[in-house]
Design a protein around this nucleic acid. Structure first.
Lengths: 156, 156
DNA sequence: TCAATTTGGTTTCTTAACGCAACCCTATTC
DNA sequence: GAATAGGGTTGCGTTAAGAAACCAAATTGA
C-alpha cells in the first residue's frame, strides 16, 4: 500500500486512525468487546488470514489497545484482552455500529440490541452533547479560530 | 491491496467500515465537517495524492456520504458537501477525536476545543448511555444471545 | 489575444500491503 | 506415537496506495 503514516500528524483523528484505522483493527476490537479473546476465535469469526491477524494483534498490543496474556491452559495459551485504552473505543465502535444500522441496514439483521445490564433496557443513540447533555449536530457547534487545522475561518 | 470486501457482511460495523473505513475517508469527512468543500483544499489540507482523493471523493459520493455540487463560480466549479448521512458521522468522528486526544495526545496540540454555538461552552465527552442518559461502559452492557455474531455465549 | 493560472482529473510507474496456502513448533489428547 | 489444536512464520501472486507527470476547460490578466 505504501501507506502514508500519520504518527507525527498534529491531528489526533489522524493519529487515532493510524492505530485503529485499518480495515481489521476496529473489527478485532469489536469482537473483543463481544467477548472474543483467542487467536483461533478471531480468525474464524472474522475470516481473516492468519498472518494478517498476527500482524494486527501485534500492532494493537504495541499500541496498548489489547494486552497479550499467557494463560497456561491446555493448548490455548494466549488471550488477547482489551486494555482500558481499548475499552475506551466503546463509543467509537457503537457510534459506527449505529451509523451502519441506520444508513446501511441489512435486510436480515436486527439493528443492534445492546442492553443495559442492570435495567435490561436498550441503550440510546451515541450523540455529541453539550455541557447540559443536550444533543448537538455538526451545525450546532463551532471551533475557535486557533484550533482549526490550517487555521481556516469557516465554521464547523 | 486485494482487500476483502464487506459489502455483504451481516455485520453493520463491517459494512460501515467498507464505506468509511479506509485511511482517508474519515479524514475527508472530518475536514468536510470543519468546512472544507473544494478539491484543492482537501488536497492541501490532507496532503493526499490527487488520484487517491479523486477516488475517495467519488466513493464517498457513491455511498451518499458526500454530494457533489456544481457551483459555476469563477474557476472553482465543484463543491463536495456532506449529506445527512455524512453529517450523521459526527458522533463517530468526535468519539475518535476524543479517544485520540485522551490516549495519544500531541504535546503541542490542544485537545479539541469544540463548542456549543449557542452557549459557547465546550462539548462533553461522547458516551454510550442507557435509556436514562447514564454513561455505560462495555461491562455495563450485554447482547442478547441471538444478536451475537456467531452465536457466542459470552457477555459483552 | 495569447500566455499563465486555477480547478479537477487521468495516466504511468513503483512500492508495499493484503490474502492464500503451506509449513512449523509445542502441547495435548487418544 | 499419531492425530489434533493453538499460535505463528514464510513465500508468493495480486492489487491498491502514492508520487509525479500530464491533460483539458475556464479564468485571469497584461
Amino acid at each position: 500500500m505504501a501507506r502514508k503514516r500519520f504518527d507525527d500528524s498534529n491531528c489526533s483523528v489522524a493519529r487515532a486512525l493510524n492505530e485503529v484505522g485499518d480495515w481489521w483493527s476496529l473489527l478485532i476490537v469489536l469482537h473483543a468487546m463481544y467477548g472474543t479473546r483467542r487467536f483461533v476465535d478471531f480468525q474464524q469469526e472474522l475470516g481473516i488470514a492468519k498472518n494478517i491477524l498476527c500482524d494486527r494483534l501485534a500492532r494493537l498490543v504495541d499500541n496498548e489497545v489489547l494486552k497479550k496474556v499467557d494463560v497456561g491452559e491446555h493448548g490455548s495459551r494466549f488471550e488477547y484482552r482489551l486494555t482500558d485504552k481499548g475499552r475506551d473505543l466503546f463509543p467509537v465502535v457503537i457510534a459506527l455500529r449505529q451509523w451502519g444500522d441506520k444508513w446501511n441496514p441489512a435486510p436480515d439483521e436486527q439493528p443492534l440490541d445492546l442492553r443495559d445490564r442492570t435495567s435490561g433496557q436498550p441503550i440510546g443513540p451515541v450523540q455529541v452533547r453539550d455541557a447540559q447533555g443536550q444533543p448537538l449536530s455538526v451545525r450546532d457547534v463551532f471551533i475557535p479560530e486557533e484550533s482549526l487545522p490550517g487555521n481556516k475561518k469557516r465554521p464547523a
